[in-house]
Write a protein that binds this DNA or RNA. Structure first.
Lengths: 145, 145
DNA sequence: TAACAATTATTAGTATAACAAGTAAATCTA
DNA sequence: TAGATTTACTTGTTATACTAATAATTGTTA
């Protein structure tokens, strides 16, 4: 049914994801922001879900646990988040943004809004819906379980 | 116009690109294939464009030159490609697949076809066209020059 | 209850790729 | 011819992914 090869989508997908990340990273660097895009995504996720365990945050960010642990170590060193005891399960640690972390996320909001505007020029709300639907479908199709 | 934040697309984009890559990588590993997905994309590109310089190949693959040089070193060590003198410009080197490299790409074709089928379940040819159009638009919108 | 299994976070080691800065050779240009 | 540009390479650093193993805790079941 589909004539084109894997290339014709995986290359485009990969190239575009990489360019978005690079563009964001360059904007961060140009503003002197001491975060990688991935680190920002961790902070942002925690901003939206203020109290998560390592495992929950890792899942939401699509990272494995060792990777997240190292990222948290870094963000902790930078003072943007903290680890807190879990009230009922002593294996777990709850993660929280510090005030500094929260205001960092807020400070980045306008910058991030600029990416969006720039990236979505010449595209419509309908395109956005296609985009999310198609990408989510691919994502779910490749569930490994 | 667009209500959602950067997250609502960059997260999905990044997550999906990562999952596609992981899925491909797992399939490669399960078949005992000694290539990363990025290495495969280099070989595949060179398969389609049989005679490229470092710079041309780097551009086509979206890699910078130092990264490509190291990847070529690796692929050369594995015997999949070779460097050849450029006939008219002695600064350049032409890159070519070896016979081994060519048959490797061919051997991977059915596997790669499986990814495509799996990823695109429940999606139409029309979706594919939306997909490529939208991603290419974003890609071009973020051109840094 | 005791033994075993599963879960959570961590640690360590390795590999890949991105990025930055600089070098050398060749080519182009003014 | 002198200087600028291009091409490829080298080196060093960093971020992230993956694997495997460990310790502590919790859950399960015989």
């Amino acid at each position: 049914m589909l004539k084109e090869s894997f290339n014709q989508y995986s290359f485009i997908l990969d190239k575009t994801a990489k360019r978005v990340k690079q563009f964001a990273q360059n904007s961060f660097s140009a503003q002197g922001i001491d975060l990688t895009v991935d680190q920002w995504s961790v902070l942002k996720t925690l901003y939206e879900f203020p109290l998560l365990t390592h495992k929950e945050l890792a899942d939401k960010c699509g990272k494995d646990q060792p990777t997240l642990t190292r990222m948290v170590d870094l963000l902790l060193k930078k003072g943007y988040m903290k680890r807190v005891e879990h009230p009922s399960d002593r294996r777990c640690l709850h993660l929280q943004l510090t005030d500094l972390g929260g205001s960092k996320v807020q400070a980045l909001a306008p910058l991030v809004k600029d990416f969006r505007m720039r990236a979505w020029e010449n595209l419509s709300q309908e395109d956005f819906e296609h985009f999310t639907r198609i990408l989510n479908t691919i994502y779910n199709n490749l569930e490994t379980k």
